[in-house]
Amino acid sequence: MSGHDHSPAHGHGGHHVHVVSLKMYFTVIALLFALTFLTVWTASMDLGAYNTIVALLIAITKATLVVLIFMHVLWSKKIVWIMVGSSVVWFAILVAFTMQDYLSRNLG
């Protein structure tokens, strides 16, 4: 039994190559452009505090598309998902624990 994270079933030189269909790539790029127009359009309206939320939701959607399809995470091993997730979680820790100070300064 192999201690490596890859399955020995692939055997020596056995190599898994994932080829993503062109159709999928072109769909994604179309979505990315559409979302870019959407973000500019929504930013031109005064939505109050929702401006930021909408902009962030659109940006997160775009980033997710790039990560999953262009960066092949959708077809990657669990460990890659964990690494992507941990970068999000650790950035969230940085933001949450810093902002808990700033946002509670006036609580007394």
């Binding site: 650790w90 820790i93 624990f97 808990q100 100070d101 700033y102 509670s104 300064r105 609580l107 007394g108």
Partner: peptide, 18 residues
């Protein structure tokens, strides 16, 4: 270890809640 850094800043002016 990532969740405790503010203990260096008790008297630095961070909020009492933090």
């Amino acid at each position: 270890g990532f969740l405790v850094w503010g203990h260096h800043m008790f008297v630095s002016g961070q909020s009492a809640y933090a």
